[in-house]
Design a protein around this nucleic acid. Sequence first.
DNA 1: GCCAACGTTGGC
DNA 2: GCCAACGTTGGC
Length: 156
Amino acid sequence: MNYWLFKTEPGCFSFDDLKARPGMTEAWDGVRNFQARNFLRDTVKVGDRVLFYHSNIAEPAVVGLAEIVRPGYPDTTALNPNGEHFDPKASVDKPIWYMVDVRYVKPLPKIVTLERIKQNPLLADMPLIKRSRLSIQPVTEDEWQIILAMGGTKIP
DNA sequence: GCCAACGTTGGC
DNA sequence: GCCAACGTTGGC
């Protein structure tokens, strides 16, 4: 069991967007960073837990929990020349980019803002603090427990 | 909207 | 393979 933090811009795809599809899963596509790609392709497994983080807004925060329901598979949005995630170097044989499928689990009763995370010395090693641009980040079990506690919930 | 951080590209 | 230029991310 691994824990992750997935970042998204809510104007593009928000936690409510995921919630709005009850019983369905969503493909986490469009990741175009090699380190994040490696996590999606090699490390993310079915059943892994995900902190859903909203970035690039006035109050960036972990807002809810999700779960991996399908491990890494080729991101076909890279093959669509009309899509915004098109990569001319990608092909069916060499997809380059990967995505996973996630499902909505539940919101945090109290969102955990970046500000609160930065104030907690136990969370100082999170990539969110020092490598804020990485969009798929591993989270330790301790960090997971702390953030859930700060969010007013327990392991789902 | 600004700008620092930093990942990627491409010339050499 | 180095490194300057460039583009993007994301907090503020």
